[in-house]
Design a protein around this nucleic acid. Structure first.
Lengths: 198, 198
DNA sequence: TTGTCAACTGACCGAATGTTCGGTAAACAC
DNA sequence: GTGTTTACCGAACATTCGGTCAGTTGACAA
């Protein structure tokens, strides 16, 4: 009766989760298309065929990774704090949350940001990402319409620059350097909202 | 005596230059590793083997493209305007020039920004790019030391955010949308230097 | 001790990859 | 017209690719 189907002590080895997290690491190092199943096998310490015991294939591995990134963004968009209040405050909240998601799910979001649309899996992910971008774009326009953003720059340009900055974090952020998600978000918001110059 | 070795009217076809520019376009659409020589051949309207009449191979095509981007950045760093005057003004000039180079050589710089280091060619390019990054990093530190940048953000973080923003332009800029290099640089400098909020 | 089963190996498959090569048609030089 | 050069094609090359499958191993239950 005790622990009938529970996960007891496994005799060391992989599971779908460990395969995914290691695979995503390699995808980010070499690029998805630049990564062979042989590369993954080497990183996992097993042979190629062992991978297929845990996951259906390379593209499904990518799909699961992209979903992790996109699910985070979807949850944020659905949050009440993204829907009510002054647009500029919602924008600030969304920027801060975006940075948090990017940092928390760094490898998954990094992968998402590099997707080009070379397969159905990638195209589906790009489509979900475009929905997020449209949400942001709308939010910036609202903030501009409410007079909270300087009127001498096109809101569309503001959107791209602001979230270009957020997304660029994926290119350099390393948790080992000590800066937390909030540290980065604070610096980003200071720069973008009130400016760097003294 | 007239036009002995000059380029006269070619009977339409490709040359190394046209192959390069079309190839770089495809590389940016699908990613370098995601692009096959067959893909390039299709885009060029010839067979795979015809490509090898004009260029030595796929990797050399990449190398030439990356050099175009890096040469632009090297020229800028060597310019006198990057060396003398208040650091904050040099920084502003370098940001503006970086945007100009990125826009002028958009496909080449875009390619450079996506290089992961999967081959010797890519590693050499990454090394040159790191030199540029070090130059920028030093410049920001100077501006901070001169008291021109708000002291409550780490200069290293400022460097990454500022040039993360510049580099992110490659992800969305389309000349057909009408914005010039200076338009983008103006908006970027307004945001980063004096802030978006009214 | 035997049987079960999760986790894996090694040999292999067909397709796709980057590249080479022998040949060739059209444009040009003379 | 003849010879040369330019720009290409089609077939083949070795290699690598993602993926399959029949078997093996070792921990564990009975």
């Amino acid at each position: 009766m005790a622990t009938p189907t529970t996960t007891r002590q496994r005799r060391r080895g992989h599971d779908p989760e460990s395969v995914l997290s290691i695979a995503v690491g390699v995808f980010n190092e070499r690029g998805y298309d630049g990564t062979s199943m042989e590369d993954l096998a080497r990183a996992l310490g097993v042979t190629k065929s062992a991978i297929y015991y845990h996951v259906p294939g390379k593209e499904q591995l990518l799909g699961r990774a992209l979903d992790r990134a996109l699910d985070g963004l979807s949850e944020m968009v659905a949050d009440e704090r993204a829907a009510s209040g002054p647009a500029i405050e919602r924008l600030e909240w969304v920027v801060r949350q975006s940075v948090r998601i990017l940092v928390d799910r760094l490898p998954y979001v990094t992968l998402l940001l590099r997707v080009r649309g070379n397969s159905r899996t990638e195209q589906v992910a790009l489509e979900r990402r475009r929905e997020f971008d449209a949400f942001i774009s709308h939010l910036v326009k609202e903030a501009a319409a409410e007079g909270s953003i300087r009127p001498d720059v096109d809101p569309a340009l503001v959107t791209r620059l602001l979230f270009g900055t957020v997304n660029s974090i994926a290119d350099w952020y390393q948790p080992s350097r000590g800066a937390s998600s909030d540290d980065v978000a604070d610096a980003l918001l200071k720069m973008a909202f009130t400016g760097l110059r003294v």
